[in-house]
Nucleic acid binder design. Structure first.
Length: 906
DNA sequence: GCAAGGTC
C-alpha cells in the first residue's frame, strides 16, 4: 500500500476548479473551504491517480497571476527616453490584487508533493501554468509537476486527463512571454512618444481635460482603429457615378410583379436611352422562362463569443462590451455556459436533448421545445459544426431554465432569450422555401423577377431574430404575353459602402486575428474611451478627428502601424515559438529591433504627425510638452489681456508665432505664415496700428512656398494692417498647418486626396506647373481646402475648392438626407460638394458626394405608340416634363431632370 | 498616465 500523495490542483478560474472537483469526486466526500482570496475556494476530496491514492486539493487562480512591467526607474513617463523602453529591463511580478491567491498557493504548495496544472489548454493557459509553477516551486522545490490536458468539462475528458498527466509545454509559455514583452515595449514607447509629442502641441477639444489625455498606441487597438478609418476614407473618396437602368412592372389579378433588367445598369446614358426607346416602341413582354426551385435556409452554427456579440449588437444594439458584462452575469448565476469561447460546434457527447427538455415550460418558446422533442414532428436536426474549437469550452448554451428573474434587466432577458432561441434553432431543421424566377423578353431585352414562398418555417419559428423575406409572384407560363404596367428608365448613383457596424468591426478583427474572443470588445471600447472613434445610434463607427489624424500621420510616414500586418507577423512568430521552430529570444530580438528602428524613424518623421494633426486641430501655445518656447522679442503690448507683452517666438519645427507672455491666463496668439524662414523684430514702428507701439518684423519667405508674385523679403506688421501678411497666411497656412493644405510634400489625408487632382494644377488641371504657379491665377493662388469665411459675423460662406466660386446653400431631398443642407459649386466641372454640418463641424469638403437620386423616373411618354396607353399603363420616356418636388441631379435645377439637363456633358 | 492577455 503506497503512501497517500497530497496533490495541489490549480485551475485557471474558480468555476473550473469546482466542475473538475465535482467530476473527479463524483460528489462523494467533496469538501470546500475558503482560501485567502474570496473568489478562489479550495475543494478537497480523495482520488486515485494511476493507482496512487491521492488527497486532492483543488483551487484556482483568476487568469494570469503575474504582470509584466518595466523596472521602477523606467516606469515614470519622464524617467527616460521612450526609445529606451525597447531594452529597458522588465520584470514579472504578482500585482497587489492577486497577492492573496499567491499566498494561498504558497501555503498549500508547502504541504503537497504533487502539483497538477489544470489551466486552459491554450497558449495563455500554458503561460499561466508556469506562473503557478514559479510561485509554488519557490516555496517547495521538491514538487512533482504535472499538466492535465482536457478539452471539455465532461466526465470522460477529465478522468482521462488525470490518468494521463503530461508535462507543461515551455514553448507555448515562451510564445506568450514574447507577446507580452513585445506588446508592453511597443505600447509603452509609442504611447509615451505620441502623447508627449502631440497632447500639448494642439488644442484637442475632444477631451474635457486634455492635459490628462493619453494618446495610446497598441498593436490591437490601432489596427482596430485602422479598420474604422479605412472604411471612412473609402466612403469619403467614393465618387458617385450616375447609372441608368430599365425597370418594368406588371399588375395582374394575382398581384404585382417587379422585373429588373438583366443587364443590370448602364453608366452610359445614351446607350440606356436607345435600348429603353426600343422597349417603349415594342413593349409587349413574352415570358421566356419560369423556374421553380426548393431553397433551404439553414439555422446558424452553435454560438461562440464573437457571434454572441455580433448578434446582440445586430438584434438589440447592445455594445459588445455590455453584452459580455451581461453574459458574465448570466454565467455567474448559472443560467448560461461559459461565455468566452471560440467553439462553435457541440461535442457529440453533449446531451442536447436534456438542454431542450429544460426549456419546455417557457411561455415563449416552451411549446417549440416540446415540438422539437416530439420525434413525430421531424423538427430535430443534429446541429452543424462551425469548425472552431478552443478545446476548453462548449458553445454558449443555456444551462438552467428561467422565465425571467426579478433582478434581470431588459438586456439580461434579451441575452438569455437569444442564447436559448439560438440553441433551439441549432437543433432544428432548416426553413424550406419555394423560389420562382420568371424571365421575360421585351424587344429583345431580358428582364427577370423572382418570388419566394416559405413552405416550412422550421427553425425560423423559434429564431424570431431572423426572417426570410420573399414576395409572392403571380403565376406566369412560358410563352405568355402581356403589356407591362410600367416601363421606366430610372437613374441612380453608385453608393459608397456604409460605415462599419460593431458586427462588421468584430468580423474584421476576427478575420485578421486582432485580439481574442475575450478581448475584442475591450479594444473597441478603448477606441471610444480614447476619443479615437465614435459610435452612432445605429452602432456604426466613425473615426474622430483625433483618430483619423493619428492614422493619417503614420500612413504619411509610410508605416502601416495602423494595419493588421504587424499583429499578423507577431502571430506567426508566436506560432513558431510555440512549435519550437524559433526561440523566444530570437523572436524578441528581431521584432524589437525592427520596432525600435520604426520608432526612431517615426520620431524623425514626427512632422508627419504634426501635419496630420494640424489638418484637424489648432496649434496650442501651451508651454511644456515637446514645444518649449523660449522667451522672445517684444512686439507690442497684448491688446487682449492688456497686461502682458506679445513676443516673437519660433517653435522647434521652425514655425513663427507672436504670443502673449500672459499665457496660460491669456491665450492670445498670432501664428505667422508657414513659409517664413526667418523673422526678426526691427526698431520700425507701424504707423497705422494702435494701440502702439507695434514693432514691425523683417520677414524672409521660402521662395518655393510662396506665389511668384510675392517677394521673399517683407517688412511686415502683425497689428492687422498688413495685407501681404494676411494673404500669405491664407495661402500658406500657419505653422505646419500650411503643409497639410497644399505646401510641401503631399500628405495622403483624405482632404487632400479628394480636393486635389494628383499631379496636376488644381486650377487649370494642367500638369507641368504647381498650383501655386498657375498662370491662370493672376490674383495669386487659393487655398486648396474649402474655406469658411465670415464665420465671426455668424454667416458662413463656402467657396469651391477648385474654382473658388461662391457655393450655393441647397437642401437635400433624398431618402437618406432629406432636409440636410449642403454647399455645391455652381460649375459642373468642379464637382465640389460639402455638407453644411460638416463645414460647421470643421470637416473639409470632398470632391464630390451627391445625394442619392436613385429611383427617379422621367416624365410622360411620347403619345399613343404601343399598347401602353390603351391598357392605362404609364409609359415613361427619356424626355418630357418633370415631376414636382424633384431636382436635376446634375445642376440642382428643379425645372428639369438630369437626363435633359442643358449642362449635361459640357 | 502606457499594451494585451487572463479573469471576478
Amino acid at each position: 500500500m503506497s503512501r497517500v500523495v497530497r496533490v495541489l490542483n490549480v485551475a485557471e478560474k474558480p468555476s473550473v476548479a469546482k466542475s473538475v472537483s465535482n467530476i473527479l469526486s463524483r460528489n462523494q466526500g467533496l469538501r470546500m473551504r475558503e482560501g485567502r482570496s474570496r473568489y478562489n475556494k479550495i475543494y478537497e476530496f480523495n482520488y486515485s491517480i494511476n493507482g496512487h491514492p491521492c488527497q486532492m486539493l483543488f483551487t484556482s487562480v483568476t487568469g494570469h497571476l503575474m504582470e509584466l512591467e518595466f523596472e521602477d526607474r523606467y516606469r515614470k513617463w519622464h524617467s527616460c527616453d521612450p526609445a529606451l523602453l525597447f531594452q529597458a529591463p522588465v520584470r514579472k511580478f504578482v500585482p497587489e490584487d492577486k497577492l492573496d491567491i499567491k499566498r494561498t498557493l504558497e501555503e498549500e504548495a508547502r504541504m503537497c508533493q504533487w502539483l497538477v496544472l489544470w489551466l486552459d489548454c491554450d497558449r495563455e493557459g500554458e503561460n499561466i501554468a508556469f506562473e503557478v509553477i514559479d510561485v509554488c516551486t519557490s516555496v517547495n522545490r521538491h514538487l512533482t509537476i504535472k499538466r492535465a490536458r482536457f478539452s471539455a468539462l465532461i466526465d470522460r475528458d477529465i478522468h482521462h486527463a488525470v490518468q494521463n498527466l503530461d508535462n507543461a509545454n515551455k514553448y507555448f509559455a515562451d510564445a506568450v512571454d514574447a507577446r507580452q514583452e513585445i506588446d508592453l515595449r511597443i505600447g509603452a514607447s509609442f504611447t509615451r512618444f505620441q502623447t508627449m509629442l502631440l497632447r500639448d502641441a494642439f488644442v484637442i477639444d475632444s477631451a474635457t481635460d486634455d492635459r490628462n489625455l493619453v494618446l495610446s498606441y497598441g498593436p490591437c487597438q490601432f489596427p482596430t482603429l485602422g479598420f474604422i478609418v479605412e472604411r471612412y476614407w473609402e466612403i469619403q473618396s467614393h465618387e458617385p457615378e450616375e447609372f441608368w437602368t430599365i425597370n418594368c412592372s406588371h399588375r395582374s389579378d394575382e398581384g404585382i410583379a417587379t422585373f429588373s433588367w438583366m443587364r443590370g445598369h448602364f453608366f452610359d446614358y445614351a446607350c440606356a436611352v436607345i435600348i429603353y426607346e426600343m422597349c417603349v416602341e415594342e413593349p409587349t413582354a413574352s415570358v421566356t422562362k419560369v423556374r421553380q426551385q426548393e431553397k433551404l435556409k439553414y439555422p446558424p452554427y452553435p454560438l461562440n463569443t464573437i457571434e454572441l456579440e455580433k448578434r446582440a449588437s445586430r438584434y438589440f444594439r447592445m455594445s459588445s462590451e455590455h453584452t459580455m458584462k451581461v453574459a458574465e452575469d448570466l454565467y455567474q448565476a448559472g443560467f448560461i455556459s461559459y461565455p468566452r469561447t471560440e467553439t462553435d460546434g457541440f461535442s457529440p457527447r453533449t446531451d442536447l436533448h436534456a438542454i431542450v427538455q429544460e426549456q419546455q415550460g417557457h411561455p415563449g418558446w416552451g411549446s417549440y421545445a416540446q415540438r422539437l422533442l416530439d420525434p413525430a414532428s421531424g423538427l430535430w436536426r443534429n446541429p452543424s459544426n462551425g469548425g472552431h474549437d478552443d478545446k476548453a469550452h462548449p458553445p454558449i448554451h443555456p444551462t438552467k431554465f428561467s422565465s425571467g428573474e426579478s433582478g434581470w434587466s431588459q438586456d439580461h432577458n434579451r441575452l438569455y432569450e437569444l442564447v436559448v432561441r439560438h440553441f433551439l434553432a441549432c437543433v432544428s431543421q432548416p426553413a424550406v422555401g419555394a423560389e420562382t424566377t420568371v424571365e421575360i423578353d421585351i424587344a429583345g431585352e431580358m428582364f427577370s423577377a423572382s418570388g419566394r414562398v416559405i413552405l416550412a418555417k422550421n427553425y425560423l419559428d423559434v429564431y424570431r431574430f431572423e426572417s426570410w423575406g420573399g414576395l409572392l409572384l403571380p403565376t406566369y407560363a412560358v410563352g405568355q404575353q402581356f403589356i407591362p404596367t410600367t416601363l421606366t428608365l430610372d437613374s441612380g448613383v453608385t453608393r459608397p459602402p456604409p460605415l462599419l457596424s460593431e458586427a462588421d468591426l468584430l468580423s474584421c478583427m476576427d478575420k485578421e486575428g486582432i485580439g481574442t474572443d475575450a478581448t475584442m470588445h475591450d479594444h473597441i471600447k478603448k477606441l471610444l474611451d480614447r476619443f479615437y472613434a465614435t459610435k452612432d445610434p445605429n452602432t456604426r463607427f466613425s473615426p474622430t478627428n483625433l483618430g483619423e489624424a493619428l492614422v493619417m500621420g503614420y500612413d504619411d510616414m509610410g508605416y502601416k502601424l495602423w494595419k493588421p500586418y504587424l499583429r499578423a507577423v507577431m502571430e506567426r512568430d508566436m506560432k513558431a515559438v510555440s512549435e519550437g521552430n524559433k526561440s523566444k529570444a530570437e523572436v524578441l530580438e528581431t521584432c524589437l529591433q525592427q520596432m525600435k528602428a520604426c520608432f526612431l524613424d517615426a520620431r524623425l518623421n514626427k512632422v508627419k504627425l504634426f501635419e496630420a494633426m494640424a489638418v484637424f486641430f489648432e496649434r496650442s501655445n501651451r508651454p511644456g510638452g515637446d514645444e518649449q518656447h523660449a522667451s522672445g522679442e517684444f512686439i507690442r503690448q497684448c491688446c487682449l489681456c492688456q497686461e502682458a507683452d506679445m513676443v516673437l517666438r519660433k517653435n522647434r519645427d521652425g514655425n513663427f508665432m507672436v504670443g502673449c507672455l500672459g499665457y496660460p491666463q491669456c491665450r492670445n496668439a498670432i501664428w505667422l505664415p508657414g513659409s517664413v524662414s526667418e523673422a526678426a523684430v526691427t526698431t520700425n514702428v507701424c504707423n497705422s496700428c494702435s494701440p502702439g507701439p507695434v514693432y514691425m518684423i523683417q520677414f524672409t519667405f521660402r521662395r518655393l512656398e510662396i506665389p511668384p508674385n510675392y517677394s521673399t523679403n517683407h517688412l511686415g506688421c502683425i497689428g492687422g494692417c498688413d495685407e501681404i501678411l494676411r494673404q500669405l497666411t491664407e495661402i500658406c497656412g500657419t505653422g505646419s498647418r500650411s503643409a497639410a493644405s497644399g505646401r510641401g510634400p503631399a500628405t495622403s489625408s483624405n482632404v487632400q486626396r479628394s480636393n486635389t487632382r494628383q499631379g496636376a494644377c488644381i486650377y487649370c488641371h494642367q500638369s507641368g506647373h504647381s498650383s501655386g504657379d498657375c498662370p491662370s491665377q493672376s490674383s495669386g493662388p487659393r487655398s486648396v481646402r474649402p474655406r469658411t469665411m465670415n464665420a465671426q459675423s455668424g454667416q458662413i460662406s463656402v467657396s469651391c475648392s477648385t474654382c473658388g466660386a461662391p457655393c450655393a446653400l441647397r437642401t437635400a431631398n433624398t431618402t437618406q438626407n432629406r432636409g440636410r443642407k449642403f454647399y455645391s459649386c455652381p460649375s459642373q466641372e468642379c464637382n465640389f460638394f460639402v455638407w453644411e454640418d460638416n463645414v460647421s463641424n470643421g470637416h473639409a469638403g470632398r470632391g464630390f458626394q451627391r445625394a442619392n437620386v436613385s429611383g427617379r423616373s422621367g416624365a410622360r411618354g411620347r403619345g399613343g405608340q404601343g399598347a401602353g396607353r390603351a391598357t392605362g399603363g404609364t409609359f415613361v420616356s427619356a424626355t418630357g416634363d418633370p415631376n414636382s418636388g424633384r431636382r436635376c441631379f446634375v445642376c440642382g435645377d428643379p425645372s428639369h431632370f438630369a437626363n435633359v439637363c442643358p449642362n449635361r456633358g459640357n
